Simulated scan of single mutants.
Amino acid sequence: MLEVEPFSVVLVADLAGVVVFAASGASAAVARRFDMFGVAVIGVVTALGGGATRDVLIGAVPPLLLSDWRYPLAAVLAAVFVFYFHPAFSRLFRAVLVLDAAGLALFTALGTQKGLAYGLSPWAACVVGVLSGVGGGMIRDLLTQEIPVILREDFYAVAALAGAVLAVVATPLDSSHGQWVSALGGGCVVFAVRLLAIKFRWSAPKPRI
């Protein structure tokens, strides 16, 4: 089981992912001209909405959103930072895409392993892993009246699914390392596929009109 201990590497990486996704959500809210409260709310639900939904589904309650103050605090601080410095932040669009890919990889891999740790079947663990990675973005898009990105472009959910499947398949071979290698491998697949999709503008087939 992957455990999150105080000041552990996992916690630091997890909070980094929270900051990245919160900044992404806050940027979308700023573009829609939300006020500061609205920007903070969108930042928090983008960063923590997917993980909270996963935790409720697998019975890991209360979710980290409610049980560990560091997670919502990190999300709020990131959102407020974007609110005040959004002109400079918007110029870092490519860097934000890379960071978003890293956050997607991290949340998908850790979400998949958490599902396995709570006794889910391999298929169900893949589902909650993907949900961990893309759920917050779906909530963000719905609240800002956008078509969710996973339904329209960039191999977003496909990248997450590929990494989740690899993490599940590799887990039985990785028992001696506490599932770290399988989680890392799955995360690397998500990250690589996402970056390649951005670079080469991959997308799933669309209907001809």
Rank of each mutant, 00 (worst) to 15 (best):
E3A: 12
S90K: 14
L110S: 02
V127G: 01
G187L: 05
A75F: 10
V45A: 11
Q113I: 04
G163D: 12
A95V: 10
V76S: 00
G185F: 10
D55I: 03
V158I: 10
L120V: 01
G129C: 12
L11Q: 15
Q145K: 12
F93P: 01
G51L: 11
S175N: 03
V190Y: 03
G163N: 13
V18N: 00
L66M: 14
I147C: 10
V181E: 13
V12N: 03
F83T: 04
V80E: 02
F200L: 15
R94M: 11
P87Y: 13
A13C: 09
S176L: 14
D174M: 14
L92D: 01
G51C: 12
G17M: 04
K206E: 11
I58Q: 02
R33P: 00
E153V: 08
T46I: 09
V9N: 03
A157T: 09
A26G: 07
A52D: 10
V41I: 15
Q179D: 14
G136N: 05
A28V: 00
A78F: 08
G178R: 13
L110C: 02
M36E: 14
A31N: 10
A160Y: 06
G51M: 10
E153Y: 05
F21M: 06
V39A: 00
D35F: 02
I209S: 03
D35W: 03
A88K: 13
L64W: 08
A78M: 08
A26E: 07
G119L: 09
K199D: 06
P6D: 06
S176V: 13
R208I: 06
I58Y: 01
P63G: 01
V169R: 11
F85G: 04
I150A: 15
A167W: 09
S67H: 02
L106G: 08
E153H: 08
V168T: 13
C126Q: 10
F200W: 15
A102P: 04
L97D: 15
A75I: 10
L2W: 11
G25K: 01
V9M: 09
A26N: 05
L143D: 05
G50H: 03
T112M: 01
A162M: 06
K199V: 05
R194W: 10
V30N: 09
V9I: 10
D35I: 04
F200V: 11
A16L: 14
Q113M: 13
R208Y: 08
M36Y: 13
P87D: 13
A29K: 08
G43R: 01
F34G: 07
V149P: 01
A197C: 12
G119W: 07
F107C: 14
R33D: 05
A183P: 06
T108E: 01
P62A: 02
G136W: 07
L110R: 02
L65I: 10
L184A: 09
A40Y: 07
Y71H: 10
L99H: 00
G49S: 05
F37A: 14
D68E: 12
A40L: 14
A162R: 01
G103L: 06
W202A: 02
F200Q: 14
L116K: 04
L110K: 02
V18M: 00
L166H: 11
L15N: 08
G103A: 06
F93G: 09
A28L: 00
S67D: 02
V12K: 04
C126M: 15
W69G: 07
G115N: 03
L2F: 11
A29R: 09
P207S: 15
V76M: 02
L65K: 08
L66R: 11
L184T: 09
V45G: 11
L161Q: 03
C188F: 14
A167S: 15
V82F: 02
